[in-house]
Design a protein around this nucleic acid. Structure first.
Lengths: 327, 327
DNA sequence: TTGTACGCGTTATCAA
DNA sequence: TTGATAACGCGTACAA
């Protein structure tokens, strides 16, 4: 690896002159410039980003922490975020915690250490203090810490209502909605369940929430659970669940000879591509991951620029896309 | 941000003593140690990884370049790679080029600049020279540059044969296989097509390759194309395609009232979860992404350690998983 | 056991 | 237009 000094020596100039050519910060005589450019080529010189970053006190990298990048929700979101960051001259460092709380903690520790300029948090298993004391720009997705930490989230209230209305329209009598065991009051997406329940009960429709363990990426497991549930509770005629478990319920229904949507209506939540690649078009509450990604990066860029935010809570609209799993 | 010197000042010692406590490199009297640890806590001191990396001439980061992280193939692979890297003390920087050749070039340029220690390349649209002259450990996935650059790849030859045997078993007469327009001789996965064709023709079965534009992540587009093809060539009774387009063909067949597997057999290639989340279990040639990830990281670690590789070409086994889309 | 001094690669500041 | 010097934060000989 040749350094800027090697180039300077070869071109018979001082290091700072090379730097000026590199960055165009000041005028350099064409002749000197030529000599320097020649030397850079000959030495196959590449500026050291690490040193640059150290000097500028920034790395040009934003990290995104996700529970599992394999999950279509997060991999899609990551695409959009990477896209937006790239447009603005930042690179994305993607960290997947494998649903491991300890690993999340370790990542947070590492990320504090100047290796990145900010973090977009798609995972939220630490104590609020751990986020509050992070010391770097932080954007939380779907998780409320306090009024100071920016939060970007889908309008899950609307999402729950839209789903409820779809069940009502379909004439369902008993709706089961599948939640995440680990979710707390701070997890905003939980609002979809509350909204669903509220609207359904206003219409005198029974509903029931079942929270399952979510942190395994195991379709077979979902499928077995779905079969069990459908067999045990034959009176259920409506299901709301995230895309992947919704697919499992759809498959379970087929295996059990239960007709969809005649005997069972399914609304999937999220709207990732797994809901679309199925043979049967699933009715879906669709989050705009593109918009969430864009907004998250916007907020991050503002934080990085030291701007003050008008609003620390950004809500992104959702919509329902009707498929063949509701009437 | 407090530096190591701030801590030293507060604890009334020299910076190097703090460093010694941090790294356990030498003996420090318990009393001094206590004072230093106290100071670190009070100042909320965090070592600067950038400076550390600069000194050690390494960043502790490995990059992975993929065409699109949204794609289940790459997002799954990235999970496994991240996992393996993490176990070995490295972080993953994931770069998604959005199927853009120019962006790939830019990324390569940036990644040269000491920002990462090595790159795992899941994308391959540059000239061979660009990879040969990279100047850092490089592991190529599914793409042959020359005998010097390590290559990790599934045994696509076996994959093609397994698929062919499945079509033969199912009594197919005319098999269409969907390839990627952009693939060249250097793309190893292309071998699956050659092997398929070879085995089929040995058995006197017609086959035909259709190369489609692959770089858009657009299921609707696949679906429309699949409908078109099935309508135009009704004599086709076998399809091999990557998971996502295979799903599209399955859906198209249902829409057109074509019975699977009676009138049309489908073998999907790759074995990502989209092939499993479907209502219909798709017969799949399954690549072991876990193994590919593990091997890639193994190779990378060896390169980083300066070890010589015995073999620059690692082939990972594939298997076929029978589903309901073949007889 | 502790401290001094320097190097890593870059850039800003000020002087020539 | 160019150069010298200091600074960024850390690690490590070497000296004390």
């Amino acid at each position: 690896m040749s350094s800027i000094r090697d180039v300077a020596k070869k071109a018979n100039v001082a290091a700072c002159t090379v730097s000026r050519v590199l960055n165009g910060t000041a005028n350099v005589s064409p002749e000197t410039r030529m000599r320097i450019e020649q030397a850079m080529k000959e030495l196959n010189y590449i500026p050291n980003e690490l040193a640059r970053g150290m000097f500028k006190q920034k790395a040009g990298i934003v990290a995104m922490l996700v529970p599992n990048i394999r999950h279509p929700y997060f991999s899609s979101l990551a695409t959009y975020i990477e896209d937006e960051l790239y447009k603005n001259g930042y690179k994305l460092m993607l960290c997947s915690t494998g649903d491991d709380i300890g690993r999340e903690k370790e990542y947070l520790k590492i990320l504090k250490s100047n290796i990145v300029d900010g973090v977009i948090m798609g995972v939220n298993n630490q104590k609020p203090e751990d986020y509050q004391e992070f010391g770097k720009p932080l954007v939380m997705l779907d998780y409320y810490v306090d009024d100071k930490i920016p939060l970007v989230v889908s309008d899950h209230c609307a999402g729950g209502r839209l789903a409820a209305e779809e069940f009502i329209r379909s004439g369902c009598k008993y709706v089961l909605h599948i939640g995440n065991e680990a979710d707390t009051e701070r997890v905003i997406s939980y609002e979809s369940h509350k909204a669903l329940q509220e609207v359904l009960s206003e219409h005198g429709i029974r509903s029931r929430e079942l929270d399952i363990k979510w942190n395994t990426f195991d379709f077979q497991g979902y499928l077995e659970l779905a079969m069990l549930i459908l067999e045990k509770y034959p009176e259920i005629d409506g299901i709301m669940a995230a895309d992947m478990p919704a697919c499992a319920f759809l498959k379970a229904a087929y295996k059990l000879g239960k007709k969809v949507p005649e005997e069972l209506c399914i609304v999937s939540y999220d709207g990732t591509y797994v809901a679309r690649t199925n043979v049967v078009e699933i009715t879906t509450v669709h989050q705009s991951l593109k918009e969430i990604g864009k907004v998250s990066v916007d907020v991050m860029l503002k934080l990085l620029a030291g701007e003050r935010l008008k609003e620390n809570y950004v809500r992104v609209g959702v919509e329902i896309k009707k498929g063949e799993t509701t009437k």
